[in-house]
């Protein structure tokens, strides 16, 4: 794999184990600037571990990893924003203060941080809910605030760990369309962990299928209509359905 500036995230021969338990095996992965790469695989295949390694929250046991050109954990941490599976909004802060957390952590004053984060509320369909506590918001709104919080951090790489897993089917489809729109408007390099093949193929440019533990790459598939405006049309298109079948077969192979 060549090293150039357009590569935003790169892993080479990356393996990881928790003591005796091997979780990831020789992963080679790259995401270009502005590319959305989805990781799908059976539960426990190390998808979340891989995200945490890329973000600098963990170190690989062997192999190399870099994000935004930085190879060290601190450097990776500086270039990645991580959106955990649960929204983890802080119940003692308003939606606005949750969204502004990264700015406050960097030392911005309260008023300034609120102004900057608040400017995005309208676009995210959250206008009027600035002062609401997270527990007063619906599941979909909470996920949007969590995503906004990740985006406001201003990092070039976003690591999203099953962002919509906790939502019901209808809100999930809605949120996928919404996230696609948000990424069309504000392009970032995204690593998206999902257990939903349709979600992965719709949101990502490329889908990487991982095997059961220890996770290794089974195959990589290109998505036919990444983040298309008409989601319902995109996911029923014959090309999409064919790739989805491919992905399912690979997933089944890898699960064995």
């Amino acid at each position: 794999m060549r090293k150039d500036n357009s590569v935003s995230v790169a892993a080479r021969g990356l393996s990881h184990s928790y003591g005796e338990l091997r979780s990831l095996q020789r992963i080679d992965l790259a995401a270009a600037d502005g590319e959305v790469v989805a990781l799908v695989g059976p539960s426990g295949c190390g998808k979340s571990t891989l995200l945490e390694i890329v973000c600098g929250l963990r170190e690989p046991s062997t192999g190399e990893v870099e994000a935004g050109g930085a190879a060290g954990a601190t450097g990776r941490l500086a270039h990645c924003a991580y959106m955990p599976q649960r929204d983890l909004l802080l119940p003692w802060f308003s939606a606005l203060d949750n969204a502004a957390l990264a700015l406050r952590n960097r030392g911005a004053g309260k008023a300034e941080a609120r102004r900057e984060a608040g400017a995005l509320f309208e676009r995210f369909g959250l206008a009027g809910f600035e002062g609401a506590r997270p527990q007063e918001l619906s599941g979909g709104m909470r996920q949007r605030v969590a995503f906004l919080r990740t985006l406001v951090a201003g990092k070039p790489v976003l690591a999203l760990d099953e962002p919509f897993a906790s939502l019901d089917a209808i809100s999930r489809a809605e949120m996928q369309g919404w996230l696609a729109g948000a990424l069309r408007a504000d392009s970032r390099t995204v690593l998206l962990v999902s257990h939903d093949i349709e979600e992965a193929l719709y949101l990502a440019d490329r889908v990487v299928v991982l095997s059961a533990r220890p996770g290794r790459i089974v195959t990589e598939l290109s998505a036919p209509h990444p983040r298309a405006e008409d989601r319902d049309h995109a996911v029923t298109d014959p090309a999409f359905v064919t790739v989805r079948e491919h992905a399912l077969v690979s997933l089944r192979e890898g699960a064995r």
Partner: peptide
């Protein structure tokens, strides 16, 4: 998990303690 989230949001040890 919240501590991890704070770390990727550039929180210092003190910021995580406080917030």
């Amino acid at each position: 998990e919240a501590v991890k989230m704070m770390r990727t949001l550039d929180a210092s040890r003190w910021a995580t303690f406080r917030r």
